[in-house]
């Protein structure tokens, strides 16, 4: 069956879930870093805008995870369910 589409874990791939959470965190932090960085807040960290830079870091990591999941998807073997059933009966 060469042209049958392979079943992949898709959105349930743990890498996609990690990317989603880190990506949302990253976007929130970058926005806070740009629009909400008061001088008082910046002074706490001696001028380092950690929301902005930390947020950018998380966005980059999220992008890397998505790229990795795209390039090397988790492919489910076609006979997975049959295999599971067989094992269950053996027990």
């Amino acid at each position: 069956m060469p042209d049958e589409k392979k079943k992949t874990a898709g959105a349930f791939d743990i890498r996609v879930i990690i990317a989603a959470l880190l990506g949302v965190y990253g976007v929130i932090l970058v926005l806070l870093g740009i629009f909400n960085a008061t001088d008082a807040e910046l002074a706490r960290g001696d001028g380092l805008n950690i929301n902005l830079w930390g947020g950018l870091g998380m966005v980059v990591v999220a992008a890397l995870f998505v790229t990795w999941a795209r390039l090397r998807p988790v492919v489910l073997p076609p006979d997975f369910e049959a295999e599971e059933e067989r094992k269950r009966q053996e027990r």
Binding site: A37, R44, G45, N51, G54
Partner: peptide
């Protein structure tokens, strides 16, 4: 408490 701004504090 001393170093993190709101946002990163939540993380």
């Amino acid at each position: 408490r001393d170093l993190l701004p709101n946002g990163m504090l939540g993380v």
